[in-house]
Design a protein around this nucleic acid. Structure first.
Lengths: 236, 236
DNA sequence: CAGTGGTCTAGACCACTAT
DNA sequence: TAGTGGTCTAGACCACTGG
């Protein structure tokens, strides 16, 4: 593991362990350099990661402070490692509805930039949060990248498996969403009524080399879904 | 202006001017260093900004490539400079519904971390996109930071004014959102029916020193609002 | 193996904050 | 004005890609 990654993780742990909250001050740069026995740039890089993630903010001439927010029950929209990170305090479960090796739909093929005769894993799951139905997710994984899936894997975190067992490096993702009305089938899955509001989210995940490997479409129940994002303002 | 900011902007312009699309290759690091006559780290910093913004992605051993996406009509959820950046191809207008110097609501006071007797500017606007009603926005600006507003400013981009004329440096923002059903009043503003779906978005904007200065609550019409985010995956 | 991006260092100097 | 974070440099060495 890289030095700056390790430092970033340890600082996150430090914040967690000391139950630090918004506005609390972290040690100054000089002390962090001495503590971790690295150069200033390496500390800076670690802090930058935490800044981008929304964990801290730095104020020139003043110090390094904990960010975070104080609303409970919100899901981090950008946390793509399943829901593990943002909902670690919640009970999240997955019910497998369907799984198959198949050809992609036209929509999936377009979003994955593949031909319609290239095989994909299709996975459909109902996800619950603390027993309540949260969303229905349909995913298409390129079989050339995600070479194997089974019921066991799919009922846990697919992304953990992909990154750890298959050693796939995820680079970036494009997320699109809009609000709409549930159709009858969707409403059935979520235990709601037809025409009830819903959030529709489509994500395209890419490898570090830019190749798309996963297209997913999620319909969130309007009752359980509250999201947050922590943004930074670059380039004034 | 800082060197790396200038370089980042010029590279954005280069991509734009050459109508580059996803997958197109930019000059290699070495050439960029020579072209801009700066050190490797400075180029790296500029590229990092573009990477975080979702403009490019870098592949070790291969090159620097244009990212971007190809869906038209989507709003960048993280673009907080009004809608200028992401919707520059669209006609966006604001109709002022209400403006006053007043005391905050309890909700606004909480989110801004101020007392209920501290003055704020309250601004309520209806925003249109290509003539269609897009959203209703209510904002509370701390008067101690945003010292003056008028109808002219408010009908254009408040954020442009704040950053440029008032010289306020925006640091970061927390964004929360959920889906719900319109009430009668909201539906009236948006030209929709009661109980139609809507996206509710709350944002808290902070200065670089972490002080909250703007709390806003936006209700988006489900018909006009499609959003996107370009995310990066840090720390596997 | 050559090309290309990533990590890390040591240090100079700059810009903002708080007192 | 001392303290603290930000910018920038020059260079060594590492890791991945692709012919």
């Amino acid at each position: 593991m890289l030095k700056y990654q390790k430092i970033a993780r340890e600082l996150e742990k430090y914040i967690e362990d000391n139950a630090m909250v918004r506005g609390d001050k972290l040690p100054i740069l000089d002390d962090l350099m001495k503590e971790f026995e690295v150069s200033k740039s390496t500390i800076t890089k670690a802090l930058e990661i935490l800044e981008v993630k929304g964990t801290i903010y730095q104020v020139r001439g003043s110090g390094i402070f904990v960010r975070g927010h104080n609303r409970k029950g919100y899901i981090n929209l950008l946390s793509n490692q399943g829901f593990r990170q943002s909902l670690k305090d919640f009970e999240v479960s997955s019910e497998l509805l369907e799984m198959a090796v198949t050809m992609p739909t036209k929509e999936a093929a377009t979003n994955l930039s593949i031909d319609m005769d290239e095989e994909v894993y299709y996975v459909k799951r109902l996800r619950r949060i603390q027993g309540q139905r949260l969303c229905v997710e349909e995913s298409y994984f390129k079989k050339s990248i995600v070479t194997y899936l089974n019921e066991q894997i799919v009922s846990e975190s697919i992304f953990d498996y992909i990154t750890e067992a298959l050693n796939v490096n995820i680079g970036f993702s494009d997320i699109f969403f809009h609000v709409g009305k549930l159709n009858k089938k969707e409403a059935g899955y979520l235990g709601l009524k037809q025409d009830d509001p819903a959030l529709y989210k489509e994500s395209i995940y890419h490898l570090v080399n830019g190749e798309a490997f996963d297209f997913s479409r999620i319909v969130y129940s309007y009752q359980q879904s509250q999201f947050y994002i922590q943004a930074n303002n670059y380039l004034p």
